[in-house]
Write a protein that binds this DNA or RNA. Sequence first.
DNA 1: ACCCAGGCCTGGA
DNA 2: TCCAGGCATGGG
Length: 274
Amino acid sequence: MLIRSKNFNIAQIANSGQCFRMNEISENKFSMIAYGTYIELEQLDEETVNISCSEEDFHERWVEYFDFKYDYDRIVKELIQGKDQFLKAAAEYGKGIRILKQEPFEMLISYIISQNKNIPSIKNCIERICERYGEKRRSDQGEGVTYYTFPSPDRLAKASAKDLRELKLGYRDEYIINAAQAVVQGELPLEKLMGCSFEEAAAVLKKIRGIGNKVANCILLYGLHHIEAFPVDVWIAKVLKEIYDNRFDVKIYDGYAGIVQQYMFYYMRNLKGV
DNA sequence: ACCCAGGCCTGGA
DNA sequence: TCCAGGCATGGG
């Protein structure tokens, strides 16, 4: 299935720090596991991507997943034509990024893990969790690929702290079990939070141990698609301090600050040579 | 060897 | 409300 879009660059998305199960498997070609499915994506040229799925699957699932209903070109143009020189450069540099609509539960657990870790380490932890608690499946792509789905809430809720500890999650292990149990017991109704206001959803998330302001904003942005969320991690903090002298006004980008944040994050890391 | 990572929690000003 | 220290572990 060929997709043509000015704002769809797989390498940029894979390296934008929002998803942890998209990996380069060969030149310009990436694998991805989401919603229990394995797919491959190949960047053929700047505006063309080949997705290894049927047209039917694409419309049923991936249109939504890659947020194709949202006009990123409008945002990019606005930033490029704007007065903010940093965002102008950031938008130009990362214009192929989109905010994925990833699975809420996977984002909940992934971003609890993410705290005080670098991205390669986060990815390793998540893969270990999938291998231990996910379902082993086989894709018919290429010569056949074995992969593991992200575990269900039920599966993680039943995990023992001792078993999780073997996965080298550090002190986060009990946060994970507790959060999974909150989902199973209905105390943390993730699907429902998509329909709530941003503030309401954030408040519910932050009641869970291990979820502070930053992690809550990531879950809201990447899992619940509240694109007004603005997660501030060490990189965004660097941007706010070094570029804006801590005077950045998020309200200017009211309603889509999360997208602006993503361009900032991706560009700043590039500037610092990550 | 060392510092830092898509931070959070607790305790004390 | 704001700050310091601790946290478990791996990547660079």
